[in-house]
């Protein structure tokens, strides 16, 4: 247990969450080893975003426990959360950039509001973060003046400027074309190694996730039905994993059936 909890930066056990009658999380558990890139896969509506929001304390779970760095985070308890918040950043699906602040001000905000650094230090550290994410030239632009990819990078810069140990990504590739998806995963993997943070990514983009991640988990109907390495995922015989993995083939079969049906119809007429 001792050695194990040292290795695991984040341990989630038996998380439950209902919205009225709707059970979203039903005893979800997950282990995130220190320094790794873990991806949680799942269909839309499987409870992936809610899982992350429980971690970020935006949503309060009904029951279950979260251990961060061996310490229990009590649900809704401000003091035990303060340490976690300092060491963890959250990247929203919508980026949630402050649209009335410039790129530089966006990055500087978490430092200004949560640290006692001087203005000069804050400026230096923010510029450094922008430089690392290659947005230095756009420091005085507003988020609306940046492209979608740049906004994503800016959000990442804002997330890492506080030098967190854990970064949570909520659907970073949602709605992007395949090339952009690759670029985002490449960016996460690159900066994850560069800055040495632990990354927990929630997505439904299977191909990219399998290539980029160290570990993969599959969430279905609020439960974790698979947890392991990408190689184990590819070899797994769990029904849900097979469905997910072989969805392209399933599509092929469905389409073939439709075409056969059309062919029969045209023969009939």
């Amino acid at each position: 247990m001792g050695a194990d909890s040292n290795q695991m930066l984040l341990r989630i056990e038996g998380l439950n969450k209902c919205f009225g009658e709707n059970v979203v999380l039903d005893g979800a558990s997950l282990n995130v080893p220190r320094g790794s890139l873990v991806t949680v896969l799942g269909r839309s509506g499987a409870g992936k975003s809610v899982l992350l929001k429980c971690l970020a304390d935006v949503v309060r779970p009904d029951s279950g426990s979260i251990h961060f760095d061996g310490k229990l985070l009590s649900i809704g308890d401000v003091s035990s959360r303060a340490d976690f918040r300092r060491r963890c950043s959250f990247l929203f699906q919508s980026n949630a950039l402050f649209d009335s602040l410039t790129a530089l001000e966006n990055v500087a905000l978490p430092l200004e509001q949560t640290t006692d650094l001087s203005d000069k230090e804050i400026r230096e550290r923010s510029l450094e973060a922008l430089r690392q994410i290659e947005l230095e030239a756009h420091q005085d632009r507003y988020p609306s003046q940046l492209s979608g990819g740049m906004q994503k990078r800016l959000a990442l810069a804002r997330a890492i400027v506080t030098r967190p140990e854990l970064v949570l990504f909520d659907e970073p590739t949602a709605g992007l074309d395949p090339l952009r998806r690759n670029a985002v995963f490449a960016m996460i993997a690159k900066y994850q190694r560069q800055f040495g943070f632990t990354a927990l990514v929630v997505t439904h983009d299977l191909t990219e996730a399998l290539i980029a991640s160290d570990r993969v988990a599959l969430l279905d109907k609020g439960r974790m039905c698979f947890e392991g390495t990408p190689a184990e995922f590819s070899a797994s015989t769990v029904a849900m994993v097979e469905d997910f993995r072989d969805s392209a083939e399933a599509l092929g079969r469905t389409l073939a059936a439709i075409r056969r049906g059309e062919a029969m119809q045209s023969e009939d007429s």
């Binding site: 935006v58 919508s94 649209d99 978490p110 506080t162």
Partner: peptide, 25 residues
């Protein structure tokens, strides 16, 4: 209107996840 839009675009939630009190800010 400004606060409503900030709520809508998750900017307020973002503040909270950064450990910034949205009330204080």
């Amino acid at each position: 209107a400004e606060l409503g839009i900030q709520r809508n675009t998750e900017q307020i939630a973002a503040l909270e996840t950064m450990g910034v009190s949205s009330h204080a800010y």
